[in-house]
Design a protein around this nucleic acid. Structure first.
Lengths: 343, 343
DNA sequence: TATCAACACGAAACCGTTTTCGTAGTTTTC
DNA sequence: GAAAACTACGAAAACGGTTTCGTGTTGATA
């Protein structure tokens, strides 16, 4: 086991002081040309790299950012993560990920762990349980400790920090309006239980579109599915008993299940029923017909979140300068595919 | 910005030495009961937590493990990562992820970065480009530096380290045999270019099953698709021109595309054509019909990889003890769904 | 020749811990 | 009453860097 070489060893070997080696490697003009060359040559030969941990301790910066997400086996979060990792890496940061698994306790635990020196700032999307409990003291805590925090997607209004969100309400409006424009009259909504503020916003956009276009909002046309353990039968029962000619689903799994159920019933997509989902994942791209869906541009969200965080990290805020927080809206776009009638 | 409290501050506040504080918090019996209580109370009040970075420097252990994978927006890698993260977290380790994006250069760069003190060991799956170039000096390098390394899925024979793999050959054999047992005669194979050793092994299993069961191996029934930018037309052309009644696809995207193409041609799945894919992702679960597929148990692979790595990390190898490397095989299983004829 | 700046380098502090070792002060022992 | 043995604590080194501040040696200047 060949230990990595340190300044101390180089210094001893070359019979100079540690400071000299350090300065020589930094091309300080305190050091003579001769010595610099000697040191650099030696360092290169032994492939010297400064120890990250020592630097972290000295600089009180780890160059690590902590990402806390509810789930990783999930297309949206994965793409956001991709964006974060990409941007971070390009800017000299590493990313340490903790998965809260939708659990409040794990979320708190992980954040405390990371806050003990492992990272310089947080990017996160809160867990379902946290949203339900409505307890955000752990977020306040890390902010008070001076950690910059960027929330994305599942954000918390009462926490004052940088945020990256999607215009859920508007895109749901647009999606609904699109189906109305196709001539559809009875548009259903398939959503999750309401403690997810994103689902709620989508529902609002859906309603507003109906009312704006003179369609009536029928409560019976909204199907609320549980967060975990979706039973296909819920959907099939709904499809069996309700009359509709379009549907907006808050994710692609619901969309593809709904589509399958309507087809099974003998209805054609999109001729008889238009279907629009959220999340442009594999399901949307490879279903039959392909799904018209809302692309959330997760990667861009991740990039922006990372950008905002790193900006905060690098621009040490002046003393008594007022901290200013931004909320960035990433515009979702509707991708038209085979499950709607497109011109 | 409230800095986290340090031993030094507690010491000053309580008018004792730093050593005393440190020992008191560790319940050392060098310290009197009184002092211990005083210190502990104060520490609890100010919510003292030892600084991770300082500990890392002191102990030369970061309690971080580095994960380098080719892609994160990919069901299989995501599940493996999930397993790693889960096991690591349960055992007091954090995970820092770097995505190589299938690029040799990024892979090398990221590993060098991580090797400068950020992590204690690596878990990785090599990039496509690395496999093509057949250059593994960066892996040898980190091993020589004393970092334990666990490879999974895309492993390298010439690198001597712990490995976690799937029995690709055998499960491909089983999948093919299953279709033959259904009475299918002409089984096609849809695979990727061959520098992926996993694809190669799957192809071998496929061939062996054909020969073992007295079916003939027809080269024309193998469709090789490029790694990036699959054109649907490649598949459609193949489906149009070849005669087959079963197909084994090396991933679920190929499987679902193939299924769509055969259905479009008017063939029924599974009556006319049986389809089996690899990867038990959303596509397999929600396609119509649902896909019979090979479950790779990525999560278990990740857990095992993490377990192997952490075991190496914690059991400092005795001096001159011979290092022993293991290759663990995670048994894949065939999940029977609607795209094959099951009894 | 005394003075001074420039040059080239080293000592030491610091980041926050842990841990070894030394040592006052007290108690026990004979 | 002196030596031995505890007790309870502190000083200092170490992990691997960076950086400030000296300082000894030159050569130039007055």
């Amino acid at each position: 086991m060949k230990r990595k070489i340190t300044l101390k060893q180089i210094a001893r070997e070359l019979e100079v002081s540690i400071s000299t080696v350090s300065k020589a490697l930094k091309d300080s003009d305190e050091i003579s040309k001769d010595t610099k060359q000697k040191v650099k040559a030696f360092a290169k030969l032994y492939n010297y790299r400064p120890n990250t941990i020592a630097l972290s301790l000295k600089n009180r910066k780890t160059k690590n950012i902590g990402v806390v997400i509810p789930d990783i086996v999930h297309h949206f979060f994965t793409t956001v993560f991709r964006g974060i990792e990409k941007y971070a890496n390009e800017h000299g940061y590493n990313v340490v990920v903790c998965v809260s698994d939708e659990s409040y306790e794990k979320e708190v635990f992980n954040m405390e762990l990371l806050a003990n020196g492992s990272i310089d700032g947080f990017i996160m999307s809160v867990s379902a349980e946290t949203q339900q409990k409505n307890d955000f003291s752990h977020l306040k805590e890390v902010m008070e400790q001076g950690f910059p925090l960027v929330l994305f997607d599942r954000v918390i209004d009462e926490i004052n920090c940088d945020k990256v969100v999607m215009n859920d309400e508007r895109i749901a409006y647009d999606a609904t309006a699109k189906m109305l424009a196709e001539g559809k009259k009875k548009i259903a909504l398939v959503t999750t239980e309401s403690y997810f503020n994103v689902s709620e916003k989508r529902a609002e956009g859906y309603k507003r579109a109906l009312l704006d276009h003179g369609a009536e909002y029928d409560k019976d046309l909204t199907l609320v599915l549980p967060f975990k353990g979706i039973e296909e039968s819920y959907i099939e029962t709904f499809v069996e008993n309700q009359n509709f000619d379009g549907v907006l689903c808050v994710n692609e799994i619901f969309a593809v299940l709904f589509m399958a159920a309507t087809q099974k019933k003998g209805l054609r997509v999109p001729e008889d029923v238009s279907v629009i989902g959220f999340t442009d994942g594999l399901l949307s791209r490879y279903s039959t017909p392909t799904l018209t869906t809302v692309a959330q541009h997760g990667e861009r969200m991740g990039e922006r979140a990372a950008e905002m965080l790193i900006e905060k990290l690098e621009n040490e805020i002046g003393f008594d300068e007022e901290e200013v927080y931004r909320t960035e809206i990433i515009e979702a776009t509707l991708i038209e595919r085979g499950s709607t009638i497109n011109k």
